[in-house]
Design a protein around this nucleic acid. Structure first.
Lengths: 236, 236
DNA sequence: CAAGCAAGCTTGTATATACAACTATTGACC
DNA sequence: GGTCAATAGTTGTATATACAAGCTTGCTTG
């Protein structure tokens, strides 16, 4: 058997996450103090503190010396600095993730896409369109063009089971990436997929990734601006 | 006088950072263990541990239970993540830059702003509103709240001559920054300033910057999505 | 020689404690 | 009523300690 003992501070983190995500604890409301948590869970103050500390670093809580710990303003947030897997992000927020695979086929690429993928116009590339859901609400549309020379088996995957990003990472380790971030109005077909009106501003991220062999893929990620934001943290 | 006692774990972090940045400690090389550091700096193991822990979370180190702590592979500089001066960016494009200073005064801050600036609700902060122009077309509205304790002379500046960012950099060297990027619809008064319709999606960047003394300022940068984009380039 | 085990190092988790620094509230005093 | 001081509660830093868990090395043993 596997005992799989969960660390105590993780249990407390989980408890706090659930209360926030279920709406029990609203934004800006006060959460139990270190002492209250340590008594409630029968752990030392340092252990309770660790849970609060890590959730603060993750942006779920805000702490203020002397006055207490509070629920931060909540919004989906993803990090630009790291190339992250959206499924992981959503799971970290304690939310349910699933994906729908809309398209997965070879396509003839336009000149613009060809240039970005380092192919010639008229060459074929692999194309996937996957809609990502957070708690059963669509949160991001991922349209991806993949260099067929570098990832020959792309079309044989099932992207409801593994995200394109996960698969590509396993096939061709990333060496480089660029992002371009814009605010756009989504085309009608996209706004319908995302269940938003066609006047809702969207964040659109174009991400090109390289392996040592060359350009691996171009991802176009579109997400409603009122549900999704990017964040980054720099230390000098 | 102000002793400004630096926390011990910060001293150790600083020591490690300097060794990495100066090239003394190369990628993948082993850094001193918790026990070695605690002896070297005459602190407890938990304090040395905290320094290693935080640097790991910040991505400078990698730890492996049983084998040790190592310098991480350097990644990422990104122009998005660099704190750039918009005047420089525009000049680099070979375009003409100028700014209009709309507001420069002390204001009572709302609760939300107070939290972000590490002030109390109802405290006063310094506030500036500056409109940046590229070739005589408005390109970005910069609204900025500044911590008056750290930048006492902010209200005496003329931000048509020097950007707020330039001035703050000279007054309080940055040690840390966070960005949040959203796609929004600008309020009417802002869309008028930017000379766009109120249905044009805008990129909004909230940038908080720290010096060693604490939160220096919160900048809210709003720019039309069809004229302005962010980019970043990561290398692994 | 090779396999396996044990020792010793490392980081990970957890506790109990102490004091410092900051905040909000309360109550006394003017 | 307004001001000030004391107080209780909160987070921040720091120490000393203990044991668990993972890796490395070297030695023992077959």
């Amino acid at each position: 058997m596997t005992p799989v003992k969960t660390a105590k501070y993780r249990v407390i983190k989980q408890y706090i996450c659930e209360n926030i995500e279920s709406g029990q604890w609203l934004e800006h409301s006060k959460v139990p103090s270190e002492n209250e948590l340590s008594e409630q869970f029968s752990v030392s103050r340092m252990t309770a503190r660790r849970a609060l500390q890590e959730l603060t670093e993750q942006g779920l809580l805000v702490r203020s010396q002397g006055s207490g710990t509070f629920v931060a303003t909540f919004k989906s947030q993803s990090s630009l600095l790291e190339i992250r897997n959206i499924a992981d992000e959503i799971h970290e927020r304690g939310h349910q993730y699933h994906a729908e695979q809309l398209i997965l086929q070879a396509v003839d690429v336009s000149e613009e896409i060809a240039i970005l993928l380092a192919l010639k116009a008229g060459d074929t590339a692999y194309y996937s369109s996957v809609l990502h859901f957070e708690n059963n609400a669509p949160i991001q549309l991922e349209q991806r063009f993949v260099n067929p020379k570098l990832v020959a088996n792309y079309l044989k995957q099932d992207f409801t089971q593994v995200t394109p990003h996960e698969y590509l990472s396993s096939e061709a380790p990333l060496t480089e990436a660029t992002h371009e971030v814009e605010a756009v109005l989504a085309k009608d077909e996209i706004s319908q997929l995302l269940a938003i009106s066609n006047t809702t501003p969207c964040l659109q991220v174009k991400r090109r990734t390289w392996s040592s062999q060359g350009v691996v893929s171009l991802a176009i990620l579109t997400a409603p601006g009122n549900k999704y934001r990017l964040g980054s943290h720099l230390v000098f």
